[in-house]
Amino acid sequence: MTFTASLSLFFAALLLGALAAAIAGRGGRSLYALEGVMLTGGLTGVLLSHEPAGVSLLAAGGAGAAAALLWGLPLLRYRRNQVLAGIAFNGFAASGAMIAAQIIGGVSYTRKGYWLEIAGENVTVFLPVAMAALLIVWLLVHHTCFGLRLRLCGQSPAPERMGLRVRVVRGFGLLLAGFLGGIGGLSALLSLGGGWRMAWGVGGLGYAALALAWAGKYGPFRAFGLALLLTLLYGAAAWFGAPESVQTALPILAALILLAIAGRKRPAEERMEV
């Protein structure tokens, strides 16, 4: 895998993850299960990596959507304890992935199918997919009726009173978030390289993406900028020949710092939580 290829995969994973967290956040739920959602989607996609890229991506998205909904099912109407549910779901996804791997008898995958030829350059399909997702999320959240409904769900103290089917709207929001997160997970697994093991999940990228969404106040373009920043850091670490774990740890550290800096500014949806 070339240097730019690994960078673009990493970037797409972060961006898609952050977009997923942003959509779920707009509906009033913090996607603490993003790590598990990305792992579920990623694993499904990887298992189908010998199929055409489209099939693999769709399967990853579908699995991610199912995972997100599974996590959110008890949380659709009441907030309950989304943090613990998220941690539990991540643990279940990681152990479930290993159980699945044992049942299947090992996971073999290929990165061959995921490239496009654009203007003479070999580009991973995840890059255009992530950019399209960015546009779609922006349009959807800020310029459609569904976006309005979603934001109403997240911001109103009693969205049911406005005649909304709160569970349905939030459920759709989570499905969409899970779809993006699943594709992001596939991109993350492909970027993580040779020594990767199932138990590692997506290496904390889910938490980093969640932190990005928070730091960017759920804005898709802010998430894009922050993801770019983290990718540059990742690339710089690789450029200077840092060991792989340091290379991935650096963006996580940066996400923590970004979140701490942005700590005082919070999205309106989150102010409802306190």
């Binding site: 309005l148 109403l152 103290p157 309106a268 102010r271």
Partner: peptide
């Protein structure tokens, strides 16, 4: 009086 309007909309 508690209201149900969303803050940002």
């Amino acid at each position: 009086p508690e209201g149900a309007l969303a803050g940002d909309l």
